Amino acid sequence: MASDAVLKYLVDSNRPYSCADVTVNLRGAYTKTVVQKTLDALSEAGKIKCKLYGKQKVYAAIQLDSVADEGDGEDYDSKLKSLTKDLAEKTNTLKEVETKLKTLTSTPTTDTAKSKIEEIKKRTEGLVKKLDTLRNSTEVVSAEEKKKF
C-alpha cells in the first residue's frame, strides 16, 4: 500500500525528493520510517533510482519513455547551427534596412526641398536689390557720422 503511493507520487511529480520531502508531501499518511523502508525497497527493486549526496539520499522515478537516442543530439546541434546562421543573416539585413531608413528619413522630401529653394531665391533677390541700392546711392556718410553710430 505505501509502496504504491510513494511510487505514484514520485512518478507523478517527476523530480527527485529526499525521504523527509516525500513524507511531508504525502501529508503524513505514512510515518518517516515506513516511507524510508519503502523507498529503499523500491530502489532495490529497480523501480526508482537512489543517489547519495553526502549523507543524504535522494530518490527519483526512473524515466524509461523519455530516453533520447544518440543521434538526436547531433540533429539538434545542426539545427542550432543553421538557426544561428540564419539569425546572423537576418540581423545583418535588419541593420542594412535600418541604415537605409535613417538616410531616407533624414533627406528632405521633394516638396520640402522645393519650398526651401523658393525661400532662398526670395532672400537672394532681396539681398541683390539691397546691394544694388547701396551701390547706386550717392550719399556718402562722413567719418564723423560713422563714429556716432
Rank of each mutant, 00 (worst) to 15 (best):
Glu125Lys: 11
Gly71Trp: 10
Lys79Asn: 10
Ser78Pro: 01
Leu83Thr: 06
Lys51Asp: 13
Lys148Trp: 01
Glu145Pro: 00
Lys129Leu: 07
Arg27Asp: 14
Asp72Glu: 15
Val140Phe: 01
Lys146Val: 06
Arg135Glu: 15
Val6Leu: 05
Asn92Gln: 15
Tyr59Thr: 06
Lys57Tyr: 01
Lys122Pro: 00
Thr91Arg: 07
Ala5Gln: 03
Cys50Tyr: 01
Thr124Tyr: 07
Glu119Cys: 02
Glu144Phe: 00
Phe149Cys: 07
Glu70Val: 11
Asn136Glu: 13
Leu134Trp: 08
Lys37His: 03
Glu125Tyr: 05
Ser106Tyr: 00
Ala5Ser: 05
Glu89His: 04
Asp4Leu: 09
Lys49Cys: 05
Cys19Thr: 15
Ala68Ser: 11
Leu104Ile: 02
Thr109Met: 00
Ile48Asn: 09
Ile48Tyr: 02
Glu98His: 03
Leu52Val: 09
Thr107Gly: 00
Asn25Tyr: 03
Asp132Ala: 05
Gln36Met: 04
Ala29Glu: 11
Lys32Gln: 13
Thr112Arg: 02
Tyr30Leu: 02
Phe149Leu: 12
Glu139Phe: 03
Leu94Thr: 10
Ser137Lys: 07
Asp77Ile: 12
Val141Tyr: 01
Arg27Pro: 00
Thr133Ala: 09
Asn14Lys: 15
Leu80Ile: 09
Lys51Arg: 11
Thr33Asp: 15
Ala20Ile: 14
Lys85His: 12
Arg27Asn: 12
Glu44Ile: 05
Lys85Phe: 06
Thr84Phe: 05
Lys90Ile: 12
Ser82His: 11
Ser142Thr: 09
Lys130Pro: 01
Lys32Ser: 06
Tyr9Thr: 05
Glu96Arg: 08
Asn136Ser: 05
Arg135Val: 09
Leu64Phe: 04
Lys47Met: 09
Pro16Ser: 14
Leu52Ala: 06
Gly126His: 10
Leu83Glu: 13
Val24Ile: 11
Ala5Leu: 04
Ala60Lys: 05
Thr84Asn: 10
Thr112Tyr: 01
Val140Tyr: 01
Lys47Glu: 14
Thr31Asn: 10
Glu74Arg: 09
Tyr59Ile: 07
Val67Pro: 05
Asn92Ile: 06
Ser66Ala: 15
Ala113Val: 02
Lys116Gln: 12
Lys55Ile: 12
